[in-house]
């Protein structure tokens, strides 16, 4: 079970690990905003390369990352694209704004150059998002995450929830495995032998003891925290938040540059001089792009029109 966990509980030795919590959280938030705000491959590919460099620089254990990536690739990308092709083959026209048909299938099915481009860009976008989360998860310990969030302005009680939840996850995961094993020993079938409906009903026998053991600890922990004066003051300092080092300052400046670049890009290309379609495409000039209103593409909008 533990070999599937990607997040570290102890800080690692490399440069990125040694940055302070706020630097990492800030970089991650800005990176996420940049990935979410842009549908442009000219921005996404550099960000992807940057994140891959970050991951490689931390010398992680690649096996769990690659396994998770493979699972995500099969479920999200492969199945998602097959569904996309069956459900809305117009996605290329709607999002990229062109219709160079490569293959005309039966009925309304067809493959256009723009459809493939759309699939490719969405794949890059999701992979970049995946890589940035992975880089963040590898670099950050739970306490650093909580202290960084606090420095970003989140109330410290919410930050306590984050770090406390991380702290209790190994305990609860152990309880979960123990309870499941003992329940299976008593004849409650959880494996694939039982039907989905049977498994669903059997889950009740597993969840009730799990909920009671987990929430049985609440009073003890809360009393211990109250006795140590938790929640008495409006502010709180964090053990994991250090004085910023030279590298922290460099990374913070770089993050601010990324933030300014993202805001500039969004203002320039979405509001002042907007590209007519959602996705930029190398072989379509601005005049050729057919712009489609996203609302009109939903399948049930046709029913209202009739």
């Amino acid at each position: 079970m533990n070999n599937r966990m990607v997040i570290n509980y102890t800080p690692g030795p490399t440069l990125l690990h040694k940055l302070s919590g706020f630097t990492k959280v800030f970089l991650f938030l800005v990176m996420t905003v940049a990935i979410i705000a842009t549908y442009d491959i000219r921005i996404l590919v550099p960000l992807l390369i940057l994140n891959i460099i970050e991951i490689v620089s931390m010398k992680p254990n690649y096996k769990p990352i690659l396994i998770v990536f493979a699972i995500t690739f099969v479920t999200v990308t492969l199945l998602g694209n097959v569904m996309l092709f069956l459900v809305s083959p117009d996605a290329g026209l709607n999002n990229v704004g062109g219709n160079h048909i490569l293959w005309q299938g039966p009925g309304r099915l067809y493959i256009s150059k723009e459809f493939l481009w759309y699939m490719f860009v969405v794949f890059i976008k999701r992979t970049t998002s995946f890589a940035s989360v992975m880089a963040f998860a590898l670099a950050t310990t739970p306490s650093e995450f909580a202290s960084g969030l606090n420095k970003c302005g989140l109330p410290y009680k919410v930050c306590t929830i984050v770090s406390l939840a991380y702290r209790t996850i190994p305990d609860i995961a152990n309880d979960f495995v123990n309870i499941r094993n003992s329940m299976m020993m008593r004849g409650v079938e959880m494996s694939k032998k039982a039907s989905v409906w049977k498994r669903l009903k059997n889950t009740v026998y597993l969840l009730v003891p799990l909920i009671f053991t987990a929430f049985g600890k609440v009073n003890d922990i809360a009393n211990a925290m109250d006795l140590r004066g938790y929640g008495k003051h409006k502010k709180r300092t964090w053990f994991a938040e250090n004085e910023p080092t030279k590298w922290d300052k460099i990374f913070r400046v770089l993050t601010i540059v990324l933030l300014i670049a993202t805001v500039y890009y969004v203002v320039m290309y979405r509001f002042i001089n907007p590209w007519p379609a959602k996705f930029w495409c190398p072989w379509l000039a601005r005049e050729e792009v057919i712009s489609v209103n996203a609302i009109d593409t939903i399948f049930f909008m046709d029913w209202f029109k009739k």
């Binding site: 569904m83 984050v162 939840a165 987990a214 938790y230």
Partner: peptide, 27 residues
């Protein structure tokens, strides 16, 4: 404090069940 601890444990339980207690149906 009691609510905070309970919500934290709930979040942890959510994480554990999300990772280990699921039956896949769809993409």
């Amino acid at each position: 404090t009691r609510t905070i601890v309970a919500v934290a444990i709930g979040a942890a339980l959510f994480g554990v069940l999300m990772n280990y207690g699921g039956i896949p149906v769809f993409t």
